[in-house]
Amino acid sequence: MTKRAIKIETLDGTAPAAIFTAEGHAGGQSRPGVILYMDAFGPRPALDGMAERLAAAGYTVLLPDLFYRYGAYGPFDTATAFSNAESRDVLMGMLGNTTQDMTIRDSAGFLDALAAEGVTGPVGTVGYCMGGARALNAAAAYPERVAAAASFHGGGLASDAPDSPHRRAADIRARVYVGSAGVDKSFPPEQSARLAQALREAEVDHIIENYIGMAHGWAVSDHGVYDPEGSERHWKRLLSFFEESLG
């Protein structure tokens, strides 16, 4: 597996990112692309490992730093970052000030970066935690490019916020998969029902699956609530979803 650091010029600056491909593969020719939208703790070895697994399955994977506007930060201890007052304040500040609209704008550059790697066909998006809503909003903003969008333990997918993804369901042409934690305050049952209704009314091909017994963050290996069996289930669903949607 190869990882290559790149820089992506956006309307707001320069975003560090990494491209992952399988060994022996030059560029992204004939390989579908995937954008992996990070969780709140930023790019790190755990997310690199996830990108590598997607690359091994046949994809050219882009992992961008969505917090690039803040310069250097972290690394954070995922087990204590939100219980420690100092790191919590830093994280909440970055989260609150990195808007959906910012990531939507940035995603044009992300797609261009994949195109520069030879990925000119359909692209998949997948996001975790804060990245879940961004993966869906990217599908709505770039329907001509994004053919599959997945969210795992994503929060605020059908909230009262004006940038909630469910409000843009009519713009989505991609297939959508949402895997929610069994009990998750950031995506409660009423939001799940609201998202399902919006996607049905927009005639979006979608699945919303509830992972009973899993906690928010279960799919990512360095989270304190990581569940190996639940994570493998998520991988089985995600890889099947991308294979069916992207080829």
Results as ranks from 00 to 15, higher is better:
A139Y: 06
V178Q: 01
E232C: 04
P122E: 07
F187Y: 04
K185I: 13
S30T: 12
R134A: 02
R200F: 13
L157T: 01
P32G: 01
M50Q: 13
A170K: 15
T98S: 12
R145N: 09
L199A: 10
A147Q: 10
T99I: 06
A149H: 00
A55E: 02
G127Y: 00
S159F: 03
A113W: 00
G109H: 05
G154W: 03
E9N: 15
A56Q: 10
G217K: 03
P75C: 08
E201F: 09
D39I: 08
D112F: 07
I6L: 09
D65R: 02
A138N: 07
D65C: 09
A202K: 10
N210G: 12
E229R: 15
P45V: 06
A202Y: 10
G156A: 06
G28V: 02
I208C: 02
P64C: 00
Q197A: 15
Q29W: 11
I8R: 06
R44Y: 04
Q191K: 10
V220S: 09
A108D: 12
H216F: 08
G154D: 00
T103V: 15
E117H: 05
R194P: 07
A51T: 09
E209Y: 11
S186A: 14
G49Q: 14
R233N: 11
S164K: 05
Y142W: 01
R173F: 08
Y37R: 06
A46L: 05
W218T: 08
V146I: 13
R173I: 10
G127I: 02
T2Q: 15
S192F: 00
Q191Y: 07
E52T: 12
G24W: 07
A198G: 00
R145D: 02
G213M: 01
P165W: 03
Y70M: 12
L36E: 03
A115G: 08
R233I: 10
P162Q: 01
L114A: 04
D163G: 09
R134P: 02
A149L: 06
F82N: 01
V123R: 09
I35R: 03
R167A: 06
V126C: 03
E86G: 11
F20Y: 00
G132A: 03
M50S: 11
H234R: 10
N84L: 05
Y177D: 15
A158T: 05
Q29G: 12
D77G: 01
G179I: 07
C129W: 05
A46P: 01
L63D: 00
A57T: 07
K7I: 11
A150N: 06
P122A: 12
R69N: 10
G127D: 00
H234N: 13
T14C: 14
E209M: 07
A150L: 10
D222W: 09
L136V: 01
S186K: 13
T2W: 13
G247N: 13
E23Q: 13
D171R: 09
A138Q: 12
G93H: 09
V178E: 06
D101E: 12
M130I: 07
E52P: 08
N97I: 07
F20G: 00
A150I: 00
A56I: 03
